[in-house]
Design a protein around this nucleic acid. Structure first.
Length: 437
RNA sequence: GACCCCUUCGUCUAGCGGUUAGGACACAUCCCUUUCACGGAUGCGACACGGGUUCGAGUCCCGUAGGGGUCGCCA
């Protein structure tokens, strides 16, 4: 047997890339990278009625987003193309003729062709499930070609796996029950079946199969919500596989550790909360520059006017540990980018609750306006000095400043906000707030 | 209905005959703290059930129940 495995992901472009498919692709990719083999993308578009161009693009986009690059397939070339099944009819005709010659095909009255099962017990050796035995079947022979001459999944799948020299088939466990049919076909062609690894299904939180309705089922939705590809990649790995090295692991480590026989055979439920936790972890590892670059599209999507990128980058970085998703960033920093910020109802109530708040803010405005230097330390010291002069605790002044400058009850450190705002805007914002009290 | 896979805290899981059944997420409490977070500490919390095998079973076997899947001229 060849030392370099050839594995494939064979999606059907009838919908968006869903999380189950993505993880199947991911495990195949990991295996190819782990063993130094080839990862092939083959588009199973034999069902003309259900294929769409948009679905095809969505699958490619999703895989690229996750970093699952393919060595052979659409856009990547390869010696075993074409990689669209819709373009391989001549090959299928050829194989069909072989089957016919072997006396394993017969036709229905309407022209549909069926493959005559061997009716022998068939063993499916599986790297995940172990040896799975299927007794000689009583199922009707399976249809492999439609009356219009187009071929059915089971047939083209096997033919292409032969033609593309696939050595390992890693796919969802929903295929396990049909695998004996594929092996029967391989044998009919006089070929050995590839090695199989049927991976567990991803279930929704309720425990049934993930469907379009379920949160997190579409890979594109992660991109939209502000997940980082590495985080989703990492989380998806942990659904059905537990490397000894731990949970949060980078790609190189995952590749090095991947072993199909370590994959569990029990289905796993999807947990968006934990997926989000992974994302928060990855977010915190981003450099200020990288964080800003990835967050910028989300800020712009919310209509924030970002003119000063240096300041914006610092603002985003200041809330790094407060967010789990990039989509949450705008709500934490929007007030940095408009002087027409609004006040949370709660905030205004608190500001108006005590008459002396206005006095305190006036004093702060004056003192801050007189600061000689402008950095977090100086600002912090300045506020403490004001507190001392007014015989109040600095801790009493901080919330007032936060409320006045941001209109928010939560956010980065007050000195950080002031530093980023600059002296002029700080003074102006306190004035603006005083005018509303 | 037949066949296939599966069954440890709420969730993801460690465990591969002898463990106080461990970790992560979530949750709760405390610490840190100008807020919110982060971080740290502690707590809560599981071997589906019934039979075997064994000196000893979460670990092996059988059964039951439950969950998932497949039986398409979908993939």
């Amino acid at each position: 047997m060849s030392d370099t495995p050839r594995v494939r992901f064979a999606p059907s472009p009838t919908g968006y890339l869903h999380v189950g498919g993505a993880r199947t692709a991911l495990f195949n990719w990991l295996y190819a990278r782990h063993r130094g083999g080839k990862f092939i993308l083959r588009v199973e578009d034999t069902d003309e009625a259900r294929n769409t161009e948009a679905a095809k693009e969505a699958i490619f986009d999703g895989m690229k987003w996750l970093g699952l690059d393919w060595d052979e397939g659409p856009g990547a070339g390869g010696d075993f193309g074409p990689y669209f099944q819709s373009q391989r009819k001549a090959i299928y005709d050829d194989y069909f003729a072989k089957l016919e010659a072997a006396g394993r095909v017969y036709f229905e009255d309407n022209g549909a062709a069926r493959f005559k099962f061997s009716r022998q017990p068939i063993l499916v050796p599986d790297m995940v499930c172990g040896d799975v035995h299927f007794a000689a079947t009583e199922e009707p022979d399976m249809t492999i070609r439609r009356p219009d001459g187009s071929y059915i999944f089971h047939f083209v799948n096997v033919v292409d796996d032969i033609e593309m020299k696939i050595t390992h088939v890693i796919r969802g466990e929903d295929h396990l029950s049909n695998t004996w049919k594929h092996i029967d076909l391989f044998h009919a062609f006089g070929k050995h079946a590839p090695r199989y690894a049927h991976i567990p299904l991803i279930l929704n939180p309720t425990g049934s199969k993930m469907s379009k309705r379920d949160e997190g089922s579409a890979i594109a939705s992660y991109q939209e919500a502000g997940f980082l590809p590495d985080a989703v990649f990492n989380y998806l790995c942990m659904l059905g596989w537990t490397p000894k090295a731990g949970e949060k692991l980078d790609r190189a480590t995952l590749i090095a550790a991947f072993e199909p026989s370590d994959i569990h055979s029990a289905n796993a439920r999807f947990d968006m909360t934990k997926c989000t936790w992974f994302n928060a972890q990855y977010l915190r590892e981003l450099s200020p520059e990288a964080l800003f670059a990835t967050a910028l599209p989300f800020l712009e999507a919310k209509g924030l006017q970002i003119s000063d990128h240096a300041m914006a980058a610092k603002a985003v970085y200041s809330v790094k540990e407060k967010v789990s998703l990039l989509g949450e960033v705008p709500s934490w920093v929007h007030y940095f980018f408009t002087d027409d910020y609004s006040y949370e109802p709660d905030v205004m109530t608190k500001l108006k609750a005590k008459p002396e708040n206005a006095t305190l803010l006036s004093e702060l405005k004056a003192d801050l306006g007189n600061l000689a230097a402008w950095d977090e330390h100086t600002i912090h010291t300045g506020i403490e000095a004001t507190a001392a002069r007014l015989a109040v605790k600095a801790g009493a002044l901080m919330p007032l400043l936060r409320f006045a400058l941001s209109g928010q009850s939560r956010g980065p450190g007050v000195a950080t906000i002031i530093d980023l705002l600059g002296k002029d805007r700080t003074v102006a914002r306190i004035e603006r707030t005083l005018g509303l009290l």
